[in-house]
Design a protein around this nucleic acid. Structure first.
Length: 279
DNA sequence: AACCAGGCGCATA
DNA sequence: TATGCGCATGGT
């Protein structure tokens, strides 16, 4: 990986297996938006960015080198060799998924945002999840500029009531959001502690929160705690497992099940979309 | 206009 | 431990 400061931007060259648009819009994060010129707009830890991917370079607009190193490089998991990981998949379906969607990476999101987002995701569809999260940020996040809001802190949410959350139109999930925020805010559950736990224990800890079952816990561990061995099974992955892997995931995914999952998830959904278009 | 969505809690057996 | 139901809301 090579990058340099050019004017006010950071320009990244010599990278592999990194497609910003795919990372931003493959169902793991819900707050990125595409600009008209094809660049991607978002904010993490209060920093906004626009990212333009060209043929041989990726431009992080209006970004200092320090912010790139502290925020964006870790966020896009740039130190991990996805090329190597994908090459290790010696299974035809996985190879196919990795070829079709080359450049997907697991985003290292903030733990609370991942937790809260995937609580909202349950029995819900992606467009609506995005809408609810947008309203959550606009209602309770910090205003960063004219049209950007941060993801609200759990301390802020913990002060609210179910009534306050009603405008989000998250339905039965409101009480789950509140329970999660309160448990974190009171220190009943500690993000730093979960970071250090073995994964089995971390799962149990997260599942103490109302509305966090096996699936949401697994998503939180994968996207919020960068536990690549976490393997969320939603309706799509359930389909994949019964259709393609009735005897379980192939051995080659060991330790990076979550990465395999992300490719398979996106691939399987794309097949349904294609079919829908044809009639 | 039904069916379904990156599930979970709860009751029942 | 295992199964089944209801849930708020609205996208397709």
């Amino acid at each position: 990986m090579k990058y340099e400061q050019k004017n006010g931007d950071v320009v990244l060259t010599d990278y592999k297996c990194l497609n910003i648009g795919l990372c931003a819009d493959c169902g793991q994060a819900f707050r990125w938006t595409e600009n008209e010129d094809g660049s991607w707009h978002g904010n993490v830890t209060g920093k906004t960015v626009d990212i333009m991917q060209n043929e041989n370079e990726i431009i992080f607009k209006n970004t200092e080198k320090e912010a790139f190193e502290k925020i964006w490089a870790p966020y896009f998991d740039l130190d991990r060799d996805y090329e190597k990981i994908c090459a290790g998949f010696d299974d035809e379906y996985l190879k196919n998924a990795c070829r079709s969607f080359y450049g997907i990476r697991i985003l290292r999101q903030e733990p609370w945002e991942a937790l809260c987002s995937f609580i909202i995701s349950q029995n819900n569809n992606i467009p609506r999840i995005k809408g609810i999260i947008q309203r959550l940020c606009e209602s309770f996040g910090e205003r960063l500029n004219e049209n950007d809001w941060s993801f609200p802190s759990y301390d802020k949410i913990a002060e609210l009531s179910e009534n306050d959350l009603a405008p989000l139109r998250a339905g039965f999930r409101n009480k789950y959001i509140l329970d999660a925020a309160k448990k974190l805010s009171r220190g009943e559950i500690s993000i730093d502690a979960v970071k250090k736990m073995p994964i089995e224990q971390a799962r149990e800890e997260l599942m103490k929160i109302k509305g966090v079952g096996a699936k949401v816990a697994e998503c939180t561990l994968l996207y919020g705690f960068a536990r690549m061995e976490a393997f969320p099974v939603d309706v799509w992955v359930k389909r994949i497992m019964s259709e393609l892997y009735p005897n379980g995931l192939p051995e080659c995914t060991k330790g990076v099940e979550g990465i395999a999952q992300q490719y398979l998830f996106h691939w399987r959904r794309s097949l349904d979309k294609q079919e829908g278009k044809q009639k």
